[in-house]
Amino acid sequence: MNRRTMYTGLALALIYLLVHGLQAFGLLLSYHVQILSLACINIILVVSLNLINGFTGQFSIGHAGFLAVGAYSSAYLTVTFHTPFFVALLVGAIFAGIVGLIIGLPALRLKGDYLAIATLGFGEIIRVIILNTQAVGGARGFSGIPNYTTFGNSYLLAILTVFVIRNFVNSDHGRACLAIREDEIAAESLGVHSTYFKTLAFSLGAFFAGIAGGLFSHYLQYMAPTSGQIGFMKSIDILIMLVLGGLGNITGSVIAAVVLTIVPELLRGFAEYRMVIYSIILILVMIYRPDGLLGGRSLGYARLKNSIEGVKAHASHK
């Protein structure tokens, strides 16, 4: 283990202790800690969508569909069979991953906006299926889900998600995905089996969205098959966080997920203005900062150095 990993680990442990410490001293109410759990769930959602949209360059706007699969299947397990939470989470995530695979195989033949629309369609079909499944409450919603999600377990799973996806992106598998994003034809001509890697990224993203879903249902304790909770509007919520944090930028995803979870809670009085402001920011960001508010790739020394050298190289050859 090198020094950087150690420091990162220490910092993460400190954050955890800090939250619990502040809670013990009454500086954070349990309501605040709950919001932090929600932020962790959103981190998982945004980072996993980043793998699909940011790193692999596919455009999914149906991510909430996988959240729904994980949320309902894990809740069904804990409610009906009293399955231990982590087992239920894992099963829900695997189930979401399989659904991702089934959807990804045909859908990923499509590109760009066609793929976007197809994922939207699949997402809505998942919602309609849930709406028609009486075992999980159908249109009435699914109630009586145990309150298993804590700050501790959602924090841990958020770290795990970031860790796995970051390492994936930095591996040869991740490079294959980046290559597909940059130029699928060139990637193929270099031996990258693009269908395989697109599907891999898609199912992996769906898997983690499934974990987030499991945490989400055991956080809310009640799931309603509405657009805002498991449908198109939820997908758009995740997408907004992703875009503002920057496509292909994990640090940005984490920051955006945390900020955009906490800020609306602080501004509850202005709830009806939230979407107006979000949408204006979204448009402005696309026009003036299409790489997101925090830039295209993860922040770091290497990136800074690269861009400086890139500018130099460019200038010296002008």
Binding site: D172, L178, A179
Partner: peptide, 8 residues
């Protein structure tokens, strides 16, 4: 990275 991808 362009080159490393091709080692895939």
């Amino acid at each position: 990275d362009n080159l490393r991808i091709a080692y895939h």
